[in-house]
Amino acid sequence: MAEISVPGDVLFEDPRRIDGGYVLGNKTIASVICVKSEDRAVPLKGKYLPIIDDYVVGIVSDQRFSGYTIDLNSPYAGQLSTRESRESFKIGDVVSCLIQEVDEVNEPMLIEPRKLYGGRLMEIESVKVPRVIGRNSSMVSMIEKYANTKLFVGKNGRIYIREGNVALAMEAILKIQREAHTGGLTDRVQAFLESEAQKIKE
């Protein structure tokens, strides 16, 4: 079973600048509840903080002369300049964006907006996103294959699902969210998808 650390626990006996930890003296101390692995701490809970080069899925929440405010399922909303797109957006539109820059108060500038439509949006905890993506996108590819869908997974915990068996993809993603910190997850998700796909065929 994975080892759970809580704030104040020593994670590493040497100083490391990592997410979910801070340096005190010459040790690395956990700052959030997390699972410790050999070289990092995987947070079990927490809100999404914008990071440069993350792809995110946002919802247009405000519209002004010079641009849009995009809700990112985070304490920090993104800013998108009208110059970034020939297309115009309405409040409530779902858009995927790339975070180009994050200022000193964590507020992100967004670029490359693409309107997402014709599918379904779901929201999960952002700390579980790496498991939904999987190593080299293996998990995403597997879900897309069995459910015959196209997924756009934002690092901020919003996932847009188009085409195919949307409900099956959603079920698989929820299963991953529930079991994110357990071993052998890929195999179990594959077994689940296979049996469900089989049921549908029958």
Binding site: P7, V32, P43, L44
Partner: peptide, 11 residues
């Protein structure tokens, strides 16, 4: 606070 995943120096 720990359950909310809010970073803290200590519990």
């Amino acid at each position: 606070l720990a359950d909310a995943g809010i970073p803290m120096r200590d519990l």
